[in-house]
Simulated scan of single mutants.
Amino acid sequence: MQALDGKVALVIGGTRGIGAAISRRMAADGASVAIVYLSRADEADRFAGELRDRGADIHLTQADVADPAALDRAIDAVTAHFGRLDVLVNVAGMAIVGPLDGYADDAFDRIFALNVRAPFLAARRAARIMREGGRIITIGSIVADRMPGAGATLYAASKAALGGMTRGLARDLGPRGITVNLVQPGPIDTERNPADGPDAAGKRSPLAIPRHGTTDEVASLVAYLASADAGFVTGSTYDIDGGWSA
Rank of each mutant, 00 (worst) to 15 (best):
M1Y: 07
A3P: 03
G6W: 01
V8E: 01
V11F: 11
G17P: 04
G17I: 15
I18F: 05
A21Q: 03
I22G: 00
M26Q: 00
A28D: 01
G30E: 04
G30F: 05
A31L: 01
S32P: 01
V33R: 04
Y37P: 02
S39C: 06
S39R: 15
D42A: 10
F47A: 09
D53V: 08
T61G: 07
T61R: 13
T61E: 13
A63K: 02
D64F: 12
V65C: 09
D67Y: 10
A69T: 07
A70Y: 08
I75V: 10
D76A: 14
D76G: 11
A77N: 14
H81R: 12
F82P: 07
F82T: 07
L85P: 03
A92V: 09
A95T: 12
I96N: 10
V97N: 12
G98M: 15
P99A: 15
Y103N: 15
A104K: 12
L114G: 07
A123M: 14
A126M: 01
A126L: 02
A127S: 15
A127G: 15
E132I: 06
G133Q: 10
G134W: 00
R135T: 13
I136E: 01
I137Q: 04
I139E: 05
G140N: 09
P148M: 02
P148N: 01
A150Y: 07
L154F: 05
A156K: 00
G163W: 02
G164I: 14
R167K: 15
L169R: 10
L169D: 10
P175F: 05
P175M: 03
I178D: 00
I178Y: 01
T179G: 03
V180I: 07
N181A: 04
N181T: 09
N181L: 05
R192I: 12
P194L: 07
P194S: 05
P194V: 10
P198W: 00
D199V: 13
A201G: 02
A208W: 13
I209S: 04
I209A: 05
H212M: 08
G213F: 09
D216Q: 14
E217S: 08
V218K: 03
A219H: 08
S220G: 12
S220M: 08
Y224R: 11
L225T: 00
A226M: 00
S227H: 05
A228G: 10
D229Y: 06
G235E: 05
S236M: 13
Y238N: 09
Y238K: 08
D239V: 10
D241H: 02
W244D: 04
W244S: 06
